[in-house]
C-alpha cells in the first residue's frame, strides 16, 4: 500500500513539476507533510537543508529521503524512479515528434505565462515553513535569533547572491552558539 502511495505521489510530482527543484518543493511538501503526514514540517525543512548541501538534484534527494523514511531501502529506490518515470516517457515522446524550439512558440509562451505562478508556488513553500517549530524563539524572550537569521540570510541571498551552502553553514554555527 505504502509502495503504491509513493509511486502515485512521485509520478504526480514528476508530471506537474514545472520550473525545477524549488518549484517541486511545494508539491512534495503538500503531499508528504499535509496530505499523508509522512514527515513534519521540521523534518521537511531539515531535509531541504541537507539536499542543498549535498550534490545532485534536490527533488531526487527529497524523493530518496521520503521513500527511505516511509518504506526503507526499497521505498527510496521506488520514489526516485517514480519521479523519473514521467521524464522518461516525455523525453521519448519529444524525440518521436521532434519539436525544435523555433517552431514551438506556443509552448514558449505558455511557460512564460506559467512563470509568475511558479514563483508564487515557491513562495508558498517558504511561507508554510514559517512556523514556531522552525522559528523556535519567535515570541519568546526578547531576542528572536531565528528571525534575525532568516532576515540576514534573505538579504545575503536576494541582494548579494551569497552561496547557499555558506549561508547554511554560517547559520548552523550561529545556532550552535546561540541555543
Amino acid at each position: 500500500m505504502i509502495y503504491l502511495q509513493l509511486l502515485w505521489v512521485f509520478v504526480k510530482i514528476g508530471v506537474l513539476g514545472f520550473g525545477g527543484g524549488y518549484a517541486m518543493l511545494s508539491l512534495i511538501q503538500h503531499e508528504v507533510v499535509d496530505h499523508y503526514g509522512w514527515m513534519t514540517t521540521t523534518d521537511f525543512t531539515d531535509m531541504v537543508a541537507i539536499s542543498q548541501m549535498t550534490p545532485g538534484p534536490i527533488s531526487i534527494n527529497l524523493a530518496t529521503y521520503v521513500g527511505y523514511t516511509t518504506a526503507g531501502f526499497g521505498g527510496s529506490l521506488l520514489a526516485s524512479f517514480a519521479l523519473c518515470l514521467p521524464s522518461v516517457i516525455m523525453v521519448y515522446l519529444i524525440l518521436k515528434l521532434f519539436m525544435s524550439k523555433r517552431n514551438n512558440a506556443l509552448m514558449d509562451n505558455t511557460l512564460k505565462g506559467l512563470k509568475p505562478a511558479i514563483a508564487g508556488l515557491i513562495f508558498a513553500a517558504g511561507l508554510s515553513m514559517m512556523n514556531t517549530q522552525n522559528f523556535v524563539d519567535f515570541g519568546r524572550g526578547q531576542y528572536n535569533i531565528s528571525v534575525i537569521i532568516c532576515v540576514l540570510a534573505f538579504v545575503a541571498s536576494y541582494f548579494f547572491k551569497a552561496n547557499p551552502i555558506l549561508l547554511i553553514v554560517l547559520s548552523g554555527i550561529v545556532g550552535f552558539i546561540a541555543y
Binding site: A49, N134, S146, C150, V151, S157, G172, G175
Partner: peptide, 13 residues
C-alpha cells in the same frame, strides 16, 4: 545546529 539552519532554509526558498 539545526535550530539555526531552519530559518536560513526558509530565507533560501
Amino acid at each position: 545546529i539545526f535550530k539555526g539552519i531552519r530559518p536560513c532554509v526558509v530565507a533560501l526558498i
